[in-house]
């Protein structure tokens, strides 16, 4: 399966999540997390922290999209980066034979 298909499926998951459920999130033991009006105090913040805090305070949906995209982009970038580093150390990163 190509990376494009994976990304398309992930986006579909996110759209489904948006459409059907924006107030529930389960955790161990099935505890429920409800919405809260927590606002971050921005008085001592600057730079990226200020931008994140403003985004968090003003638009939770946009914050969620940014979080998801940042984690996806960073995860992909780091995967390629560490792959190169492991190759440099001489670790074989290709197909392997299976042994039980």
């Amino acid at each position: 399966m190509s990376i494009k298909k994976i990304i398309a499926l992930l986006l579909l998951c996110i759209v489904i999540a948006c459409a059907f459920n924006n107030s529930y999130a389960g955790d161990v033991g099935g505890k429920e997390v409800t919405s809260l009006d927590h606002k971050v105090d921005t008085t001592n913040l600057s730079g990226v922290n200020l931008w994140i805090a403003d985004l968090y305070n003003n638009n939770k949906l946009m914050y969620a999209i940014v979080v998801t995209l940042v984690m996806a982009a960073l995860g992909t970038t780091m995967a390629f980066g560490t792959d190169l580093i492991l190759k440099m150390f001489g670790m074989d990163v290709t197909k392997i034979s299976h042994r039980e």
């Binding site: 999540a17 919405s35 999209i65 979080v67 998801t68």
Partner: peptide
């Protein structure tokens, strides 16, 4: 992916 988005919409993710 689903959990990340849902928790972030509820403001429960510390991005940094």
């Amino acid at each position: 992916a689903y959990g990340c988005f849902i928790y972030a919409v509820n403001g429960r993710v510390e991005l940094v």
